[in-house]
Design a protein around this nucleic acid. Structure first.
Lengths: 212, 212
DNA sequence: TAGATTGTTAATCGATTAACAATC
DNA sequence: TAGATTGTTAATCGATTAACAATC
């Protein structure tokens, strides 16, 4: 039996926490801290140390049972898991405020994401420049995707067009979608789909629905 | 015993779905559909009809056991629950790309959120205009919050400053925080806090961590 | 009424937490 | 070694789903 070749993806909540783990670990590293315990991490992220250990258990790192996790090794393990150093080319559909903000968003690059193209359906916008990229027509989407080996599409269009754009992206060969629109989007099994909606987040603020 | 005065907040996952319910219901309304069943809603949002009914059960609406829910009544009930028509003033901290996109984001208004002010700590940015608002200095935050009766603060600054900004917002009297930064943010019990991180969403795309 | 759909209880599923023996 | 911290199993918690009697 091989060592431990289970190539299973960590469950969604774990994947959600990975970027924060990474951020915290780097923070420690930049302060020249060599070790960090599950308790410290837990406190910093507002979760329990048990969750931290549970999450890390699949990481296949050396057991630092006396002084906690070795910062450097942790960094490497997590970075590796999220393919941090691998370029992940993406296209932004919709050159409105949100689309532009995303294209200019510096943090994406830090995690290996690279905005390779931005497209829009408004002829008045096509041809204008956003962060060094010329906005191209949505009609060119298929060729743009092919050209740049893009496999992630970001949907930053009004709700009504979200599904249409999704279909077009999938047709163009993308296999991952980030939907920023409120609209309904469905995708076939083989395409992974994540929703991120600012308005929903705001409505989650519990005091928005006061008990009084 | 009074009718049913349990003033309990719906659980977080329900709150997450409310905007989507609302969006779908309005969609139907705009098509002049009078009734909608839990099955139709479920299909549209990619969840089960059981979840839909479970979520709606606390809504205190008339039982439309034959033809489903009355669109108009649903709309009213959900809108009411999320205080859709009530103005919810907010301040955006950070006039970078993300902050500006948010301030210009039309959808916020549709849900009753109103960006009343935007502040930044960079003197070069203070004084410039974003969507009809003049960017003010972060030093003025307390008075800005008081002036406009703001109770929601949006954190759109680099990770390193996130906690500092949060503290300042809380001190200024805000009781809800939306954190868009990757950094760690903690807040006292009485302040509600929600995180929304684009990078985390992107990393959730499962194909970013391929099994091969 | 008969048929369809809800509202609600109970069963299932999955994630978080607690606990503790194994490890350094 | 003794003490601290991990890795992992078992217990708990909460959300989703299934099922079905109540309702229109």
């Amino acid at each position: 039996m091989p060592p431990k070749l289970d190539n299973k993806l960590p469950p969604k909540p774990v994947r959600q926490r990975l970027p924060q783990y990474l951020w915290y670990v780097r923070e420690q590293r930049s302060r020249a801290n060599k070790y960090v315990t599950s308790q410290e991490i837990a406190y910093a992220l507002g979760i329990t140390s048990s969750t931290v250990r549970q999450d890390f258990s699949s990481l296949n790192i050396t057991n630092g049972a006396r002084q906690g996790y070795a910062v450097e090794e942790l960094d490497r393990a997590i970075s590796n898991l999220v393919h941090l150093s691998k370029e992940k080319p993406l296209v932004v559909v919709g050159a409105g405020n949100l689309g532009r903000a995303l294209a200019l968003h510096g943090n994406l690059a830090k995690y290996g994401f690279s905005v390779r193209a931005i497209v829009d359906n408004d002829p008045a916008v096509v041809g204008s420049e956003v962060g060094g990229l010329v906005v191209r027509s949505i009609d060119e989407l298929p060729s743009v995707v092919r050209e740049h080996n893009i496999n992630i599409g970001v949907i930053a269009v009004p709700a009504e067009s979200a599904q249409r754009v999704a279909d077009l992206l999938i047709l163009s060969g993308v296999d991952g979608l980030l939907n920023l629109a409120l609209g309904r989007v469905v995708a076939p099994e083989r395409v992974s789909l994540v929703h991120n909606r600012i308005v929903s987040s705001l409505l989650q603020l519990s005091h928005v629905m006061p008990v009084d």
